[in-house]
């Protein structure tokens, strides 16, 4: 563990030194090691969407956050991609609106599952009908919000991610248990919200655009360190607390 901390600090110092020497702005000259930085700037100048580049560069950063929270803190959701994708979805819809959208999708998914259980269909046909119900409900929601003029149009991708998450919930509830499903879904949402909040911070958005190479190095260093961590997760301390024997000398 110590060796990796050292590695992290060293690379931070190195990259910071590099960053300090050619801060200041303006188009940089290509010097080999700054390929990524120059490429990002060139692409932006030629009209590639800044938002897309930012989100693209932020994806691995969010994934890193998710893996740190999972392996060191012990907060888990459905894998690593689901929370990352949901956080992008939340960013697109806005966090509160996104959560509300998810709530609607989830209620319909669970409700349809509850109804369809009585029909005793095979699993996939039942889920197809469930998907149809979700589609109709989301369309209804869109119609209402557009009619009232509350929100902008809901784009399809956040809706797709939300459907994926709620399907995962239904499946876990069926195959494992309701408790497990709730835990994992809440975990996914918590991770996604954390990710979305980070992606919203202006400094970080600018930072990945200005120093994409630094982001790449950091992501690698942190993930190598986390990937080698074999210690206890923070939440496990609470779990194992009851298993520590206390030897008390009573009179």
């Amino acid at each position: 563990m110590r060796k990796f901390l050292l590695l992290a600090v060293m690379s931070l110092v190195a990259v910071k030194g590099v960053a300090a020497t050619d801060g200041g702005g303006g188009v940089e000259r290509w010097r080999g090691w700054n390929t990524l930085r120059v490429a990002v700037e060139a692409a932006r100048e030629r009209g590639v969407s800044t938002e897309t580049v930012t989100l693209l560069m932020l994806l691995p950063v969010i994934a890193t956050l998710v893996s740190v929270l999972h392996y060191i803190v012990g907060l888990s959701g459905y894998g690593i991609f689901m929370p990352t994708m949901i956080s992008v979805a939340l960013l697109a819809t806005g966090i509160v609106e996104g959560l509300m959208l998810f709530a609607v999708v989830l209620v319909i998914s669970v409700g349809s599952n509850w109804l369809l259980k009585r029909l005793r269909l095979h699993f996939w046909p039942a889920r197809s009908i469930g998907l149809m119900m979700v589609a109709v409900a989301v369309f209804g929601l869109m119609a209402v919000t557009a009619g009232v003029g509350l929100a902008e149009e809901i784009s399809i991708f956040p809706v797709l991610f939300m459907i994926m998450l709620s399907e995962e919930f239904v499946r876990t509830q069926l195959v494992k248990s309701g408790k497990e499903a709730k835990k994992l879904t809440l975990g996914t949402l918590a991770l996604a919200v954390a990710g979305a909040l980070i992606m919203k911070i202006g400094v970080i958005r600018e930072w990945v655009l200005m120093y994409p190479d630094l982001a790449v190095v950091l992501v690698v260093v942190i993930n190598v360190a986390v990937g080698n961590y074999t210690g206890i997760r923070l939440t496990e301390i609470g779990r194992f607390r009851g298993a520590v024997r206390v030897t008390s000398l009573k009179k």
Partner: peptide
């Protein structure tokens, strides 16, 4: 306070997955 030393005896998830 939590005495982290007393937790070293346990096999936790990270180590189970990675080592054992």
């Amino acid at each position: 306070g939590i005495n982290l030393k007393s937790y070293r005896q346990f096999l936790a998830k990270n180590e189970r997955n990675k080592v054992y």
